[in-house]
Design a protein around this nucleic acid. Structure first.
Lengths: 158, 158
DNA sequence: AAGATGTATGTAATAACGTAACAGGTCAAC
DNA sequence: GTTGACCTGTTACGTTATTACATACATCTT
């Protein structure tokens, strides 16, 4: 499996994600409406995070909604159903690239140079964090793990 | 050592942090100006995160500055020097409670009920995250690890 | 002491991000 | 064909953050 940082056949990448989304919608009886589908498509265009207003601009240009709530609602739907993630550091959203269980969000690697965002399985990290927190009597419900740094390609260019 | 979630002598807690800050300023030749010192004192009042505008309100009431940049600049100074941390999930800031090396930010435990924020040593987690990212050729420079959940006291009250 | 330099603060204006509230439309089930 | 649930459209507003420029202050140099 290639990382988001490497050259790869991205349309296959996006197609696979859309297929997962369609399957999930069928499986759970979710409504992947035009706005929601289009927002997911936009997020899937590149392996980076998109601001809500950036998504909104795109929607507006296509006549799919001009006001912030339109974008935020669609993004919220995608995030709730695990089809997208919110990147806290960037106040932005990115399409989910890997099927994973609910609430088991991965860790994110964010390249400060090319803005590419990749996912990293965080099951072990999350377990350890929960264990450590448990020592202090704290019950972890959701964990955010985001790493900012430099990807191999950008490090090479430096 | 008690956690921030337990009852404890908080003024000792705050005093210790201010002492560390003063020492650091001397050691590094930093200028802990009135605004910066006051902002740190405010953050130290409670083990929770304060929004920039909340801090600004306090400053304004004391005649120390009325515009956002005043608060943001002081907060930025504190964060850069490891005297405070930004909690991404909350778009807010909290005083640093533990002396730790630069760039070695701890993990944060945020109680969704009482809003208390505690620090957890994250050296191991960070090392593992860096190692995993390294497999993908990604060089981690800064990592954000934040856990939202319920502290023991609040879980008890539920 | 005067001037030069670097750093901190004051202020205005605005950008960027996010939500509440309500009206209207769509669709499936009964 | 009406009900009820959910989705969308729109207004209005609230919150968070930054840019840009002016002013003040400290420190060092001469």
């Amino acid at each position: 499996m290639k990382t988001a940082f490497e050259r790869h056949d991205h349309s296959a990448c996006a197609d696979a994600a859309m297929a997962r989304a369609t399957d999930l919608a069928v499986a759970r009886g979710l409504r992947l409406t035009p706005v929601r589908r289009r927002v997911l498509e936009i997020l899937l265009e590149r392996h980076r995070a998109f601001g809500a207003y950036e998504v909104l601009e795109r929607l507006a240009a296509e006549g799919l909604g001009k006001q912030p709530p339109v974008a935020y609602r669609a993004l919220e739907f995608l995030v709730e159903n695990g089809l997208a993630h919110r990147i806290q550091r960037l106040n932005a959203f990115t399409a989910c690239q890997s099927a994973h269980a609910d609430g088991q969000a991965p860790a994110f690697l964010i390249c400060r140079e090319c803005q590419t965002v990749d996912e990293l399985d965080a099951a072990t990290l999350r377990a350890e964090l929960s264990a450590a927190a448990g020592q202090a009597g704290f019950a972890v419900e959701r964990a955010t793990i985001e790493a900012l740094g430099l990807c191999a390609a950008c490090a090479g260019r430096a």
